[in-house]
């Protein structure tokens, strides 16, 4: 198995508070990895450090990039610590948000089209005067976006305002939008939040499907244990910013520290 991304002891301190301490993550190609932990454990902070929203106060985020030299694939690690979110997205790490962050007033199609913009090579003059290169790119963008919308089952509502979609579909649109940036790694922040058991089952199948179809590595934060256990190859558990366990779902379910973190410790014992 090949490593696509890893973090080397990333730490995030807000003043005197250490939100995440020495977090070491390793993602292998094609894996689905989950990050769990009680509320306030620092899961989203870890996400934000990887995606560039926060710059870690310590440690490094390293992306394993493939390049071709003399017809051979060469891998080398690139330090992406402290890059801006848009630069990191360009390098192939896309994300969704815990509280859905769609472009609410724009149409479903526009939401996905916007995520294509980062790969545009036409400049603003070519775009204004609709020169051939821009026209070609625009056509490709629309085709690709429609393709994505069809895959997530939203093609029929492409002209609707994104905020008018039902909750579950908004989640799917957010994933489609992230996929439009051509990521290699997809980070999902609580994709099943607010979903009923039926919807979360569908989501589990959906995430596995897009992983295979788009050749992705998925890293997700989730609270629904049903989803987490059903989907993940490996799980990391955070509590008060410290990694208290990592391993496959079976190991995690039987880990004493994880059970304590979730259920509390009997003080009298």
């Amino acid at each position: 198995m090949m490593n696509v991304m890893r973090t080397d002891n990333i730490t995030m301190q807000f003043g005197g508070l250490t939100a995440v301490k020495d977090f070491n993550l390793e993602l292998n190609k094609g894996e689905i990895v989950a990050l769990i932990g009680p509320n306030g454990a620092g899961k989203t902070t870890a996400f934000n450090m990887i995606t560039g929203v926060y710059t870690p106060t310590g440690g490094k985020v390293l992306l394993n990039q493939k390049s071709t030299v003399d017809g051979k694939d060469v891998y080398n690690e690139k330090d992406i610590t402290g890059l801006r979110p848009d630069q990191i997205t360009k390098l192939g790490i896309a994300r969704t948000f815990q509280n859905i962050r769609l472009f609410k007033d724009l149409s479903v199609l526009d939401n996905v089209l916007i995520a294509n913009h980062l790969r545009i090579s036409s400049n603003v003059f070519e775009s204004i005067f609709k020169l051939p290169r821009y026209k070609r790119e625009e056509k490709q963008m629309v085709e690709k976006s429609m393709n994505l919308l069809e895959k997530v089952g939203l093609a029929d509502s492409r002209y609707e305002k994104s905020s008018s979609l039902p909750y579950g579909q908004q989640r799917r649109l957010e994933i489609a939008r992230a996929l439009a940036t051509d990521p290699g790694i997809l980070l999902l922040d609580e994709p099943a939040a607010g979903m009923n058991p039926k919807e979360s089952d569908d989501l589990t199948i959906f995430i596995k499907r897009i992983r295979d179809e788009f050749d992705l590595t998925v890293f997700l934060i989730e609270h629904h244990m049903q989803v987490v256990m059903g989907i993940s190859n490996r799980i990391y558990v955070l509590d008060y910013g410290i990694t208290i366990a990592k391993g496959n779902p079976y190991e995690i379910q039987n880990n004493q520290r994880v059970i304590e973190a979730y259920l509390g410790v009997d003080e009298d014992a």
Binding site: D86, F97, D110, A115, T181
Partner: peptide
């Protein structure tokens, strides 16, 4: 155009726009 859509994305939600590579 695509640039105009990017402008509107920034208006709607800066954090999301930046995360989409803008």
């Amino acid at each position: 155009s695509s640039y105009g859509r990017a402008f509107k994305a920034i208006r709607e939600d800066e954090i999301a726009a930046e995360s989409m590579g803008i």
